[in-house]
Write a protein that binds this DNA or RNA. Structure first.
Lengths: 222, 222
DNA sequence: CTCTTAATTAATCATAGCTTTAATTAATTT
DNA sequence: AAATTAATTAAAGCTATGATTAATTAAGAG
């Protein structure tokens, strides 16, 4: 009963030949469709036919506009993922010397990114975090390791000045920041299922900052 | 130069027919090979041929012993993943009333699991965490949501008793526990690449417990 | 109005994937 | 020792995939 109740985009079987001038920008439509498939099913599991069906066209269009599946994938990376990452990079890169403020800016930056690009966490986990992910090497080669290295360096300096819990590892702190922001956002569906509750980014920000600020301890009263 | 320098298992091209009685348990070998492929490349990207090559046999053996690729996948789940998860479940389930002790037990339990089954984090992220992961529904239907729900419930009670930072969300705390243990373990390769350093589970435990204990703050001196 | 060009579908190709079948050989049973 | 059973490879079948080509139609140029 529920199968195929809502066809993806277009229902009408278009005749071959150039369409009348009501056509939207198909290149953009294809990138959008590819991104949707990549996020939903993963890049490796997405076929040209899937993307074409999602966009409501034939697989040949994909080659007409991009030349190959790989080229389309590259375009999605270049025109969607990279701008998203860059926005975070700029947002967090220009921060002062105070690691607490820097932490807050990072947490809010990441979760702001998630609000702006809800597809980002899922794609990042599957295609960047996972070994063999299709975008991992590409992303590292394009934006480099500077941002995490810079953050870790700042944490290390603050620790030397005694401004940071000495038992922490500065590099793992960078990992923890992501584990408390991007990871929860990416895994939201499974927690929604388990806890039967929606955990929005605002709650996430508050929780992450509280945990980073004081850990599990209740507010100090002394 | 580095390509194919070390063939996966057997090099000698075995003739057809039943082998002389030096054969190891091929069923176990196949499960092992499948797990290795699943962890390295992901379940969706692993073909029968890949598994067969990894085990040094023909793809037909896979059908001879399991009937289908799906059945082999089910066997890997049942005989490898499920026991690993169960061991954690028992380890953490039998904990006292103190949430601090419970937290420590969970962190040490997860990272002990990682030490015992180094393949676990990667597989968990790709096949359970990721939407559409091949093992997600299976795992939820087999072990259920009780463990995370129980942990969240304990945190909520402790918070009501004033023993827990009031700004934290009890459910997100469960997520955070995983974000500070399983997630770093799963993403270790990428951090290794970025920081040019190995971050072992012992460092991870110390760091996670420090962060959970006091957050970023230096040790209190008042 | 005609010709060319752009955009699209349908049909096709070659390749790789999962599965099945037939053939082959060693072990086991009688 | 002959017959049967078990374990294995080689080969083939069918399907899905990425890519290409030919056909088709509207838009735009002269």
């Amino acid at each position: 009963m529920t199968t195929q109740a809502t066809p993806p985009r277009t229902v009408k079987r278009r005749a071959p030949g150039r369409p009348a001038t009501d056509s939207p920008d198909l290149r953009a439509t294809l990138i959008e469709a590819a991104l949707a498939c990549f996020v939903r099913d993963g890049i490796a599991a997405t076929s040209s036919r899937n993307i074409a069906k999602e966009a409501g066209v034939t697989p040949a269009m994909l080659n007409y506009y991009f030349g190959s599946k790989q080229a389309l994938q590259d375009a999605v990376f270049e025109e969607r993922l990279l701008p998203a990452v860059m926005s975070l990079r700029e947002r967090v890169g220009s921060t002062g010397d105070d690691v607490i403020a820097m932490t807050r800016q990072f947490v809010q930056g990441v979760l702001g990114l998630v609000d702006a690009f809800p597809w980002f966490p899922s794609l990042w986990v599957r295609e960047v975090l996972c070994e063999g992910g299709a975008l991992r090497e590409l992303l590292l080669s394009r934006i480099g390791p500077e941002l995490p290295q810079m953050l870790a360096g700042r944490f290390a300096q603050a620790q030397q000045r005694g401004q940071l819990n000495a038992a922490l590892d500065p590099r793992l702190l960078v990992v923890s920041l992501i584990g408390l922001t991007l990871f929860p956002a990416a895994s939201a569906p499974i927690w929604r299922q388990i806890f039967q509750a929606e955990l929005g980014t605002d709650v996430l920000v508050r929780h992450a900052l509280a945990l980073l600020g004081h850990g599990l301890e209740p507010a100090h009263e002394n």
